[in-house]
Amino acid sequence: MVRIDLIAGARPNFMKISPIIDAIREASDAGKGIIDFRLIHTGQHYDKNMSGSFFEQLGIPAPDVNLGAGGGSQAEQTAAIMIGYEKLLMEKNKPDLCLVVGDVTSTMACAITAQKLHVKVAHVEAGIRSGDWTMPEEINRMVTDSITNYFFTTSKVANANLKNSGVGEERIFFVGNTMIDTLLKHRPRFQRPEVWNRLGLEEGKYLVMTLHRPANVDQEEKLRELIQKIVDHTLDLPLVFPVHPRTKKMLQHIGIGHERLHMIDPLGYLEFNYLVERSKAVVTDSGGITEETTVMGIPCMTLRDNTERPETITEGTNELIGTDPKAIPPAMEKLFSGNWKQGQVPERWDGKTASRIVAILLEKLALR
């Protein structure tokens, strides 16, 4: 029997880990090998949407351990997670492997802690790079990958990034995207949110917007101009804007509003993706949403100057239009003229990624 710690620090982490848990159980039921896992929530992010209904809705078991390491500065949070995880490893049975996902602070902190206590590390979503060192996530990715044993990647671009940094090919496994496993599993269960009827929304006749990155929301005038340009160039269509807490604080200062701009509270996973799947297009600065829109075939405009997910552009429906508000009018013109690209689903984004990961852990890595 193999013992594995599964590390999650924020809501998206649980959505990436959920299919891995499903695959572990399926492998056990099929007699392919037993993995005893411990789901660890570092407590990095407090999210009011992380209620029992969130876990129940997506079929995620409640965490076995919560380290309660939320709050504080980047350094304080990193230290709290490392102290909490080190204590857990020293007091309880050490696992054979620490599996981390994505690029949050918890990913980096637990990888460092595990390696210092001689526990091997596997990184799911390894090798993705934006090239932007001003993003804390980019530092987390680079540090984690520098001390990882087994690399599970979402694309061949990520493979190349790792090889270029000196990682041997025998440690790189191109498996696909576990976030898409979750999307495809729950797609038939997307739920119409209350806002659909309240606003009288119609399929293909509204846009969805999300904004939360500092480059877009931390400057009042920049945020005001961005939103105004979007409103001015979306014809007569409603613009549904689930507002991130970071963005909400700034919007209260600038006092922007429009009859077609509908600012609502954040939605649950099933409700949000119901809106995305039926929208005309999505305007965002989120990386994960660009992956989901690519699979759902929805045009996506990303208000960033770089991306760690280039396959959503080269293969998918995403376009990187930058953070300059002047880029919005031509992008909207392209959308409404019917000239937006069709895109395709990237290789191995097929809902079977987690099964590939578990098979590798049980067979190729000889962990049985």
Rank of each mutant, 00 (worst) to 15 (best):
Ile313Asn: 11
Glu311Ser: 12
Glu319Ala: 02
Ser286Gly: 14
Pro299Ile: 10
Ile321Asn: 05
Ala331Val: 07
Arg304Asn: 15
Asp324Asn: 15
Glu277Ala: 15
Ala281Pro: 07
Lys341Glu: 07
Lys326Glu: 13
Asn306Gln: 12
Asn306Gly: 02
Gly297Pro: 10
Ala331Cys: 06
Lys352Tyr: 09
Ile313Ala: 05
Asn339Ile: 00
Gln344Glu: 12
Lys334Met: 08
Thr293Met: 03
Gly343Met: 03
Thr307Tyr: 05
Arg309Pro: 02
Gly288Phe: 04
Ile328Ala: 04
Ala281Ser: 10
Glu277Ser: 14
Ile313Met: 09
Val358His: 03
Trp349Gly: 11
Glu277Met: 10
Thr314Asp: 14
Val282Ser: 00
Thr302Met: 11
Met296Asn: 12
Asp324Ser: 01
Lys352Thr: 14
Glu347Arg: 01
Ile328Trp: 08
Val283Pro: 07
Trp340Thr: 05
Val276Arg: 11
Ser337Pro: 00
Thr314Ile: 02
Pro299Arg: 05
Leu365Phe: 01
Gly297His: 13
Glu347His: 02
Leu365Ile: 15
Thr294Met: 04
Asp305Lys: 14
Thr323Cys: 02
Ile313Arg: 00
Ser279Gly: 03
Pro346Asp: 06
Leu303Gln: 09
Ile360Ser: 12
Pro329Phe: 10
Lys326Cys: 05
Val358Asn: 06
Ile289Arg: 09
Glu347Ser: 10
Thr314Trp: 08
Thr312Met: 00
Trp349His: 10
Ser279Cys: 15
Val345Gly: 04
Val295Cys: 14
Gly351Leu: 10
Glu315Asp: 03
Leu335Thr: 04
Met332Asn: 08
Gly351Tyr: 13
Val283Ile: 15
Glu347Asp: 14
Asp350Thr: 03
Glu292Cys: 00
Gly343Arg: 08
Ser355His: 11
Leu365Asp: 01
Ile313Leu: 15
Lys341Ile: 06
Ala359Pro: 01
Lys352Trp: 12
Pro299Val: 01
Gly297Trp: 13
Ala331Trp: 10
Glu363Val: 12
Lys280Ser: 09
Ile298Lys: 13
Gly287Met: 05
Thr307Lys: 06
Lys334Gln: 14
